[in-house]
Design a protein around this nucleic acid. Sequence first.
DNA 1: GTTGACACCGCACAAATGTTCGTGTATATT
DNA 2: AATATACACGAACATTTGTGCGGTGTCAAC
Lengths: 235, 235
Amino acid sequence: MAALSERQRHILDFIVEFTDEYDYPPTIREIGEKVGISSTSVVNYNLAKLEEMKYLSRRREVSRGLSLNRVKLAEIGVTAREDDSASLAPTQAQREAVGRRFRVPVLGKIAAGNPIQVDPRDATNPEDWIELAEGFLGSSERLFALRVQGDSMIDASVLDGDIVILRQQDTANDGEMVAAWIEGDEETTLKYLYREGRNVRLQPANPNPDYRPIIRPAERVRINGKVVSVIRVLH
Amino acid sequence: MAALSERQRHILDFIVEFTDEYDYPPTIREIGEKVGISSTSVVNYNLAKLEEMKYLSRRREVSRGLSLNRVKLAEIGVTAREDDSASLAPTQAQREAVGRRFRVPVLGKIAAGNPIQVDPRDATNPEDWIELAEGFLGSSERLFALRVQGDSMIDASVLDGDIVILRQQDTANDGEMVAAWIEGDEETTLKYLYREGRNVRLQPANPNPDYRPIIRPAERVRINGKVVSVIRVLH
DNA sequence: GTTGACACCGCACAAATGTTCGTGTATATT
DNA sequence: AATATACACGAACATTTGTGCGGTGTCAAC
């Protein structure tokens, strides 16, 4: 699967921003204007690509017929608003009434061993939701979850089958457990993060020598988020 | 200010329903069709009224240029979807799967050698609550939580500071992780359970020889509950 | 009975907007 | 060199879609 071009990322960013502001998606021309594309057909072309990659769905011959896949967007760090689509924000009282709970989408599996891509099929419809109380993990903003596959983090007491909850962020401190996207390899993996000069070392936590650290130039590693919680369900 | 006509209410209902399904608002004609209005101008007329009454706002000369005021809608009982995090709306099945939320009391700390009587029936003063979604752990009945102190279960990837969620039950199968009260020793401990004849062996999961199995007559061990989930919050 | 506000209809127009086609330019592949 | 592919451009086209205007019917007020 092809990776996102910079242009496509801009398009996604803009659609999110626009939709959040107006409650309806932009037209092809509105996208082109903002992203700096003079031709409507080019926008159309890229939208088709984005649909192929499941970042959004389109309805043919329908104006503004876009529907974002926000779950998939979270994967690549395109953040959207968290709360309601009300153009007039809910009052404080209403917020209280609703309660401070939030759901976290379990986007798919992340291989902590042999790195594989987060399964795009499951990304459309998260396999599950984890519901937590605010305050438990601090802010409810920008959280998502992944199901761990493999044993590479076993020394960190993260087992195969565990669910890790991550806060979406682009950076992290040395020694923190992160989910990272490795450009070129086109893979997402769960590892400890260490910086080493211009490089980034993604360190597994398993004494088995099969699990080797992955060292890549910093600019080719994009951090998806930092692990803030680990959840295990026994059977 | 005039009240809502039945037609206008239908229009609002439809816009909400449509937007929830497609992520973009309907056109004037789409509204007319569904609500049973043959003329676009009539829809337009009523939309103007609705805007006057602040139920929505419109952008002139913009297709689908509607933005609902969900707060105002809530006042008159027009319900919208609860969440909007996923643009591809959850299926009914998924909605059901998420189910109700419930809170689990964190009753206290549990540690070998640190005698803390834990009585799930006496949840008078829990130090905290964990909030979970039903379906996540099955029934919400008879669940409680404890904060782990010590490393006796480190080999089971249960670390100091983790929160274990237990289902209150008097018995458990061999190999299950349980919280057990040991009469005579007057302590509650978190261990693996094994039966050995008339005896019960409570087995820690730590290679350190300091952590020895505890073997007691079955009648002197009371099982408080079985661990069904482990939760860790990183800092 | 006339007036005027209100709700509605049908239709035509113009603007907005998605689609398509021919073309060009790199880059990789054969 | 020839071919294939991905990406881009511009223009024309066709459909979608909001707007505007003339007209109808009802009802309460004057």
